[in-house]
Design a protein around this nucleic acid. Structure first.
Lengths: 140, 140
DNA sequence: TTAATCCCCACTAACTTGGTGGAGATTTAG
DNA sequence: CTAAATCTCCACCAAGTTAGTGGGGATTAA
């Protein structure tokens, strides 16, 4: 039930890309890594995963970097986590009546969690981010 | 987000104890393990954990075994999972605005899952079990 | 042509998972 | 009192996961 560093890094990187989205320029691994205090060599692998799953696209060479593959309102948190965490589908069937009952309860709980993540898009997070930031500015 | 064997074993053992609850007799590790196809030496450790957290009580010696420490309606699935999975509280504080936003979204999702587990008591599972079993009987 | 950048593959240390093994303490039955 | 059944505790282990690090190669802009 805990958020792994891996997933948190991926979510942060995607949020960072979403915040920079609209400028059209790609964002580099190093830049993202520095902003969010993520080891860059590790983030590299996560971004490669995200690219293979079609959530971001990359541009190689000088002034290259990463861009969101879709608009921020069309990317929700569940797909980010699922793509990075690997959705292992090969679970063995329950072999007792009790096991199937326990599994059902667990599945219901998991679905509830997934629905919440599905409800959060990168755009929503960006809007929340902007509101927070302007509030902070107000106090300064 | 996946149910570990460890947690599933604990949930199954607790459900088994709940099904046998009322007879007043303790149930042995071996018996539970056989019914649910759990390695008995491993289950032993899980039951010890559950006992230390006050969810079950044990009786040593011949004809000893385990009993629920509370009535089945007063034990919900969340506490079983939390006690077995170990609720590690020492998470580092988010150091960026983005990190706190991501954490909040994740926490909301986790709370949704926990609420579902909290809503399921052992008694509810037992009732569901009895309904299923009588339905099966009907077909035979 | 060169510097910046992504791409890919391999390696690792520490930790977790899912167990197994063995000796000891306690209780009931006979 | 003794023996068998049962829980208790501590240690050990193999395989997998996590969170990285390292080194070189391919591609592109200036």
């Amino acid at each position: 039930m805990e958020l792994s560093a891996k997933s948190e890094y991926a979510l942060l990187a995607m949020l960072q890309l979403a915040l920079g989205h609209g400028k059209g320029e790609p964002m580099q691994i190093k830049e993202i890594a520095q902003c969010q205090s993520i080891p860059d060599r590790y983030l590299e692998q996560l971004l490669a995963d995200l690219r293979r799953h079609g959530l971001v696209k990359s541009q190689r060479g000088a002034r290259g970097g990463y861009l969101l593959a879709r608009e921020p309102f069309a990317i929700h948190l569940l797909e980010i986590v699922q793509c990075i965490e690997g959705q292992d589908e090969n679970e063995t069937a329950p072999n007792t009546l009790e096991a199937s009952i326990v599994r059902e309860a667990w599945d219901e709980s998991r679905r509830a969690a997934e629905q919440v993540l599905k409800g959060h898009t990168l755009q929503k997070l960006c809007e929340l981010h902007d509101r927070r930031q302007s509030t902070v500015m107000y106090y300064i």
